[in-house]
Simulated assay, not measured.
Amino acid sequence: MPYSSSSSPLTQSIAILGLGAIGTLMAWHWREHTLYGVSRDASTCHRTLIDQQQAAHQLTIPAWQHEAIDWLVITTKASATLDALQSLQKQLPQVQNILLLQNGMGQQQQVADWLSQQRYSATLWAGISTEGAYRQSAEQVVYAGSGDTHIGLWQAQHPTASMPNGLTVVDDIQQRIRAKLAINAVINPLTAVFRCRNGELVSHGEYRQALEALASEVQQCFTALQQPLDFDLKERSLAVAQATARNQSSTLQDVLHQRPTELDYINGYLIRQAQQLDIELPHNRRLLAQLSE
């Protein structure tokens, strides 16, 4: 049963590692809490958030000096997660809860295994968000669309932590992450390959045909993994693409700005899972090959 923390009166101490688009947006949502930024040079972080009414909000986030904190929230790319945590190895005993708020799958279990090996007591949470944000410049983030942020314990435990504002705790977070990954595995690589906005996957005949073929392959993959989706992926992907028609996917933004993408933890994750069952995913492989070129 989900429950929301939006009315929690308790102030939390939160350090955010990865003050990009989503990290900055969450910092703005959590501005009434005690906030820190995690940076290599321990410098104060300055960000401007442009809200949906085009008003500018200035955020000044001091560097985490390894004070005891309630939450370490990681919003980096999935591929950077474990390295980022390992760089904070000496400071992790000061952390009560770790929240991975990212796209993709695979990094959550990597972190869980590493924390167990190191015998850290921090509780691991994972989350997904349908909030929309993008970086307009290095220090300026645009709040593009309201959404929900759900989190849950990565491994079965009883949640006892007080929550930062605006989070909804659920007991099926892995299922929700798989559902979001499935949609991302369809929309993100296609928009990046075709260099198109989400809505063009619906309106353009060739792009829509590619979406339907990829969605069918991804849906069959989850079924073979005995993790069947409880919705028709083709119809859901078309609906999401239409609802976000003017948006550029995060993968397309990464490609246009010549940044590494997260697809190794989205389509790449599916390919690795399928390999264990000797299942081929030709559409997924072809898209990753095209983007790697």
Rank of each mutant, 00 (worst) to 15 (best):
A213I: 15
I61C: 11
W154P: 08
R178L: 08
Y143W: 15
C221G: 04
P282K: 09
E131S: 08
I50D: 04
P2I: 00
C45W: 12
G205P: 04
D41W: 07
A63G: 01
P282Y: 08
V186S: 00
L201Y: 02
L256S: 13
L201G: 03
D70I: 01
Q219W: 06
C196F: 09
A243D: 11
V240S: 05
S87L: 13
E206V: 12
P164A: 00
L19Q: 03
Q227C: 08
Q227R: 07
Q276C: 05
Q91K: 11
M26N: 07
A144Q: 08
T191N: 04
L277V: 03
T60Y: 05
D148Q: 15
I69A: 08
V186R: 03
T244C: 00
S121A: 15
E217V: 02
S6K: 15
Q89N: 15
S5Q: 09
G127A: 00
L82M: 08
A156H: 12
Q117W: 00
T244Y: 02
V38A: 02
Y143S: 02
D254T: 09
Q155A: 13
L270Y: 10
E131M: 14
S4H: 07
L101W: 08
I173L: 04
L277R: 11
L99S: 08
I50Q: 10
G104T: 05
W30R: 00
S146P: 12
Q89M: 13
Q136S: 09
S162E: 12
G268F: 05
I14A: 06
S250E: 07
L82F: 05
Q273T: 09
N267A: 14
G145A: 02
T75Q: 03
R119M: 15
F231E: 03
L291P: 03
Q118S: 06
S146V: 14
N198A: 04
P164R: 03
D230C: 03
S250C: 06
L115F: 11
A138I: 00
L59R: 06
P189F: 05
L100D: 11
T48A: 04
D148W: 07
H158T: 15
W64M: 01
E32A: 07
L229F: 10
L270N: 07
A156D: 14
S4T: 05
T34G: 11
G268M: 00
L101H: 08
Q140I: 13
A42Y: 09
L92F: 10
Q107M: 11
L256V: 12
R286G: 00
S250K: 05
G199I: 07
P62A: 07
A213F: 12
V218I: 14
Y120G: 02
T149M: 06
A15V: 03
Q52G: 03
Y143R: 11
H150N: 12
R195T: 04
V38E: 01
L88T: 05
S8L: 10
Q107G: 10
I279K: 13
H66P: 02
T168Q: 01
L238H: 02
A210C: 05
L153C: 13
T11K: 14
